[in-house]
Amino acid sequence: MDSQRTPAAVPATVDATLALLGQHDYVADRRLATAVFLALKLGRPLFLEGEAGVGKTEVAKVLAAGLDRRLVRLQCYEGLDTAAAVYEWNYPRQMVEIRLAEAVGGVERAELAHDIFTTRFLLRRPLLQALSPEDGVPPVLLIDELDRADEPFEAYLLEVLSDFQVTIPELGTIRAAAPPVVVITSNRTREIHDAIKRRCLYHWVDYPDASRELEILRRKCPAASEALARQIVGFTQRLRALDLFKAPGIAETLDWAEALIALDRITLDPQTVADTLGALLKYQDDIGAITPDVAARLVDEAQVARAGA
């Protein structure tokens, strides 16, 4: 850890944060930029909650790229435990070590125990990697979809998030020299405990408005013509206003745009919409609700809006 590398400076203003995100093709609204700026400035974890596909995970990726830091990702799932999230002892190597010690002979038990439980035999999982980075630069730690983990793991995170330290019984407490940039995301399949939220800066990531979605589409999908991009945005914006079980996120919009380009469509028509709706809507009930009539009406409205724009 002696080869200290100086990390890129964090942005000094909200505008600089907005520009930083923009440089890496993340079109953020000012509200999100403010939350990101404060998280960096105050050294607090950023808690992003929102529907699936609105670009929560992307924030962490862009931050890692923009700040020139490594991205350490911890994907949560039910039953996630310290062995998978923090550290694990390398049992095969430890057993070999024991066998070798026996073969050589003359090794005291206490000494053996001391030798076995050292960092040499420690497998570092994401949280530990984030707290004691090998290159000395605090990374961006992404704790993805925390709502999928169970409550005991949440409780464990409290120590990590408030003191940036973990305790390994055999080794002692490992504390981060400099805290990592922490981004936590949740799809809200259950409520995250207030104790976690209290330690974080909270931001609800909403669906983008039309102008922002258009900007995202231009950047992420430059192959789409301006006219098609406007129609796509007009259509998805209207789709979200309908009473659907799961409205399409920005990820779905991009998928759909890719699909339309792959099919060489230059303009939207009801038949194309019906054929490709599976890229936008992921529930059969929702797809059923977009009858040819509804699709035709939405396409018309999207085109009228384009003419007016």
Binding site: V14, R30, R31, T34, A35, L38, A39, F47, E49, D194, K197, R198, C200, L201, Y202, H203, W204
Partner: peptide
């Protein structure tokens, strides 16, 4: 606006 969003980021923890 920044002032408001800054306060919101800190003070609001549920949508």
């Amino acid at each position: 606006d920044d002032f408001r969003e800054a306060l919101a980021a800190v003070l609001v923890s549920r949508s």
